[in-house]
Design a protein around this nucleic acid. Sequence first.
DNA 1: TTGAAAGCGCTAACAG
DNA 2: CTGTTAGCGCTTTCAA
Lengths: 342, 342
Amino acid sequence: MLHSLIQLLNLLMSEVTLKKLAGMLQLSISTVSRALKDHPDISIETKTKVKELSVLLDYEPNTFAINLRSNHCKEFGIIVPTITNDFYQSFISSLENEVRQYGYSLIILQSGDDPIIELANLKLCKQNRMAGIFVSITSKTTDINNFLKLDEHHIPVIFFDKVPSFEACNKVCVADEAAADMAAKELMLKKKKNILSIFGNPELLITQKRLKSFEDTVSGYGLSTQLYIHYALSSDEAREITMNSFKKVIKPDAIFCMTDEILMGVMKAIQQLELRTPQDVGVIAISDGFKPTLYYPEITYIETSGFKLAKLAFARMLACLGGSSYAQELRIESIVVSGGSL
Amino acid sequence: MLHSLIQLLNLLMSEVTLKKLAGMLQLSISTVSRALKDHPDISIETKTKVKELSVLLDYEPNTFAINLRSNHCKEFGIIVPTITNDFYQSFISSLENEVRQYGYSLIILQSGDDPIIELANLKLCKQNRMAGIFVSITSKTTDINNFLKLDEHHIPVIFFDKVPSFEACNKVCVADEAAADMAAKELMLKKKKNILSIFGNPELLITQKRLKSFEDTVSGYGLSTQLYIHYALSSDEAREITMNSFKKVIKPDAIFCMTDEILMGVMKAIQQLELRTPQDVGVIAISDGFKPTLYYPEITYIETSGFKLAKLAFARMLACLGGSSYAQELRIESIVVSGGSL
DNA sequence: TTGAAAGCGCTAACAG
DNA sequence: CTGTTAGCGCTTTCAA
């Protein structure tokens, strides 16, 4: 009887609020509010009465009101050039899992590698007073002052993967140089003599670092190794380069691919040329680890895990939220995953 | 002089609000509010005065207050089993682009194919009064009442891809049967006689539908075609099946792959067996279109585009938000993309 | 142990 | 053309 009455009321009231609970219980709003939060001042009887009704009516606090009052919300923004990329995909997937454990949500914002859209996204984050932001900047982003300004507004910004060179900001990245260094070492161990080395956009800092490290390591071995350095901005360019390399008199005995995208182009060429790995040519890549498992034998790669990086980025975010000093650069170490292609 | 004074004030005030603008201009809050919104009642002079100052001080309306007042926000939730999947990835990427055009944001929620987490995510969407929700349900979701309840709260729910069988809800999906039918037709056109056909989880509705359609089409041609039907729950199972099939006396002259995952396993086996496509064996898949381009020759596939589906889903969402009647099932047609593998 | 009241920032009905 | 006022739902100080 009482129950059906309640149900009726429940139907009539679109939203259950503290006010309504208070009205039904003949209590003040503040008492209800405190009872729900187990405030020590409130008597046990009142607490149970309030809680029972709130459960019965399925009361849910209004997030908008809470946000307004507290002036912050439990949402993080993540700005990336595009999510259609194995690395970002695993990063985002992992990050979503992390933030959920802590009661936060994750808002996806793609810049399309366009600094204008990136800026608009940034503005949105600021306007929505997000709890914090994760950013992988576009290849054309030059001015990071707009990002730094958010820190003034107490919105921590964690740069990941594609990070600015500016020092006083929070960055987490994979071990750029170390990864190239490891790849070079693997190639040296296998005594490769003619290495087709395909790197990405030469204007990016990451490319320059990796190239330098790669060359240094190779020359450090003092062997008569010949490096053929190329840059590919797309999978197709990498394929072309590979095809052309095998038309030469001296053919490569190994190929180094700086990215997944390059690996894809290279593998297509290898299939087209009907070459076998590792017999005809060895292949090694720097990769997140998805693409290398698509081939037989699987591709040997230096792992730069988006999963791990996300965990690190989130840990750093929590530290910032907890009031940590505002500038740190963190890296995760890479490991070699042997697939049999080298 | 005035400028530097303003800057000083700017620094002192953490947040610029209507109240502060009003105070500085000796106007009432409501006048400032209306001026900023180009309300016809306000005089030109006042408008310009207000706008100039707001620009100068970089005024941004407080989203939390607006949300509280209007009782809704400009955010959509998207719940998927996992984002690490080409199809969802392209869906989400495309959807994010769409919603941004309309001033909305997209919140990512992964269920991990776990109905419990899915429910928790759903609750979050309700609690945060999201503008609408896109859902691809888990393989174990049986009760969709919780989803339907959101419609009562005026939160439209659009199911996509993995949709419930319940009729009175909004669904957008790829053409399940038609895709399998098209694949079968392609195989028949090429006069394939021994077709290794690998399907996904036999318990899923989509698998059953595709299998039936596939078989019907093949038998409709009345040719002496032999179908070898298998189910693979993982890439590796698909690889095993393929390896075993080629140990038999009668070897397949074509392979049909119901999903990207199956395709990956099949291709690995083909590389391991050092078979060439299409000479030794033809391959056709149902795919979103990323994986097929990784091989040479590229794989012929029936496209089930996440990009297109997202556009359709968003259009449906807008219609619902605009007050459209609440139950419609939409499908997008597939097309054949010839890659040279068949 | 409980209640009254103010205020977060914004909008809008109503009043001048 | 502009101002006053009330209110969205919640928290929190102050008062009883």
